[in-house]
Nucleic acid binder design. Sequence first.
DNA 1: TATATTATTTGCAAAATGCAAGTATTACTT
DNA 2: AAGTAATACTTGCATTTTGCAAATAATATA
Lengths: 149, 149
Amino acid sequence: MDNVRNLFQLLSRNFGLLNEQCCENCCGQEVSNVQSHILYEINRQHHPSMQEVAGALGMDITTFSRQVKTLVDKGFVKKTPHPSDNRMNILSLTSEGLSIENNINLTVNAQLQHVLSTMSEFERDTVIRSIKLFNDAMQKSVSCCTPPQ
Amino acid sequence: MDNVRNLFQLLSRNFGLLNEQCCENCCGQEVSNVQSHILYEINRQHHPSMQEVAGALGMDITTFSRQVKTLVDKGFVKKTPHPSDNRMNILSLTSEGLSIENNINLTVNAQLQHVLSTMSEFERDTVIRSIKLFNDAMQKSVSCCTPPQ
DNA sequence: TATATTATTTGCAAAATGCAAGTATTACTT
DNA sequence: AAGTAATACTTGCATTTTGCAAATAATATA
């Protein structure tokens, strides 16, 4: 009976640090950590609304609204009114936003591959498969991991 | 050639949300997310100084200093001058701080076990072993994962 | 003894946060 | 169809968090 929290706490801390440093390295302070999460999620979803992205990130919608505004001002994100419901805004990355997101992606991936390269191919595959497995399990688990409301 | 970042990004986000919610649940807003990380790390290390904890968490020392002050005021953390070097403060949890840390630990672990319970025992073991493996690899990798300076 | 180095704290100004209340638009209700 | 409710988002405001620069205090070095 391990203390599983320890493992995840360390993992998420280390990944957080790596992510943050990569952000700074490849786009020189242009985006904060939360902002990089927002870019990531906008890119991942299919024509998401504000609420969908904020919900996925577990962010307060008012904080999110302001962060998006900042990203729009910086020219990284575009807000398009929903065609059939003008209350909603569809979020998308501008080409510049996409390029930054790709940059972060490349940098973080390179670092992770570097970490993984110290393992055998078998271990590497196992690790990757395990994390997929756990992510899926977490997604299915309704009792947690769902942003409040 | 997977996009490994995706996996880790999702994992760390989900764990972050879980952690945050557990904090609120079991100690009713008494500690913020960063503060729970601080409690965690003080508990984990052996008579750590301010810099040791701040360093491990990759936090700016001035921000850290103020957060610790808050935790001291709340009665969760104790600062003891280092016996042979009065510049340093040794950090420790008070009994109340420890009890809160244990509470968070129990709650988060229960949630994680719940997620893991959807898997077969083999999968569960593999996942846990994989994360250990990755954590170790990350710790060894000097090119990243080390807080600035 | 004077100077440098280390550990931590404060000043300050900027950024981030979240509740309450606002606006605008669409959905119901009778 | 008019009025009410609900939804999606924004803004006001007060608090908290953040990090650089500079200050303080204690130890190490020259």
